[in-house]
């Protein structure tokens, strides 16, 4: 026989999807929020994002090539997504060296020390962000003022930290609300905050795109947001003077970004729908607890990292419904 045929076990056809495509889809879904950030914060956005992405790719390349002695696989897009998410989680005025430190932590400690793509327990971007938040609290809480013609909302602090400070001074919520941007501004993204968490609306659009492209399922984002509404709603209902209403909770801070893009990180979230819902509920509860009773004004980063640690247990106990199950 002059020609050998290939044999292999079935199946012989494969879906056109690839890990790379999934990662690039996440990057595309983040694009509207990025463009909005450029509009709000100007070219600083591009500076932060490109430094973060570049540093993430570079760190991954160096570690893979010289430390792990394997073929670098930075083109798979996962470091790109980590870089964008890291940039989205920091203030736009952050000095370049802090961003680089964040990237080194995110990729080096958060991802590669566990073995690289697919092996990390925690969301790398959040590891980087939390590291920066603890190490450089001043820089990480210096919010640049946004000044757009015609829009009269110059903010130097995020709504959440305003509330935290206000409550510490014993101010009732209703009084604070007057000095806060209206809900529509929060939705569209005219309030202060990190790069990517500005516009809840654009993040939701990105999330819907991901769901249509079947990159993520509804379970995690919906369960996180629903839990936040429910828990904060209970507090608000019990004492509207002490606690702010649920709408502010879901529209402020990094909640949308966290619920849609960070918590749904495939590697560090549970595998089964049941596990994903428990995971989402856990994130929601912990977020509200930190926001209401913790030292930090924002809690979703910590909440996601804590639930990341719980994920292996959820995978162990939340089994899918077996066919013909007993």
């Amino acid at each position: 026989m002059d020609k050998l045929f290939t044999v292999s076990p079935s199946p012989h056809i494969f879906s056109g999807d690839s890990t790379r495509k999934i990662m690039y889809r996440v990057a595309i879904a983040l694009l509207p929020a990025l463009l909005w950030a450029v509009f709000i914060f100007g070219l600083d956005t591009l500076r932060v994002t490109s430094i973060a992405v570049g540093a993430c790719l570079g760190v991954e390349y160096i570690i893979q090539k010289y430390l792990m002695k394997q073929k670098p696989s930075i083109s798979d897009g996962s470091a790109l997504v980590t870089g964008i998410l890291l940039a989205f989680n920091v203030p736009s005025g952050l000095p370049w060296w802090i961003i680089v430190i964040g990237a080194v932590t995110a990729i080096g400690i958060g991802k590669m020390s566990f073995g690289g793509l697919g092996c990390n327990i925690f969301n790398p971007a959040l590891v980087g962000r939390v590291f920066l938040l603890i190490s450089f609290p001043v820089q990480m809480n210096t919010w640049p003022s946004i000044a757009i013609d015609g829009v009269d909302s110059i903010t130097s602090a995020t709504p959440l930290s305003l509330i935290k400070e206000g409550l510490a001074k014993g101010m009732p919520v209703s009084e604070m609300l007057e000095s806060m941007p209206p809900v529509s501004d929060l939705l569209l993204g005219y309030s202060g905050g990190s790069l990517g968490e500005m516009s809840a609306l654009l993040l939701i659009i990105g999330g819907i795109y991901l769901m249509i492209r079947k990159v993520i399922t509804w379970h995690i984002p919906v369960s996180v947001i629903a839990t936040v509404i429910l828990v904060s709603g209970v507090f608000w209902f019990s004492d509207p003077v002490e606690y702010i209403n649920p709408v502010y909770h879901i529209l402020t801070g990094g909640l949308m970004l966290g619920a849609i893009f960070m918590a749904t990180d495939m590697v560090s979230s549970p595998m089964t729908p049941k596990g994903q819902i428990i995971y989402g509920v856990g994130i929601g509860i912990i977020t509200i607890c930190i926001r209401l009773f913790g030292a930090y004004p924002e809690g979703i980063s910590f909440a996601i990292l804590i639930m990341n640690a719980v994920t292996p247990i959820l995978n162990m106990y939340c089994k899918p419904k077996r066919f013909g199950g007993r």
Partner: peptide, 19 residues
């Protein structure tokens, strides 16, 4: 001589299950 070209997981035990 080879008469076919196996393209599955490269372990003996797994190839032997099918070929």
């Amino acid at each position: 001589p080879d008469t076919s070209n196996y393209d599955g997981v490269k372990t003996c035990a797994i190839e032997l299950l099918v070929y």
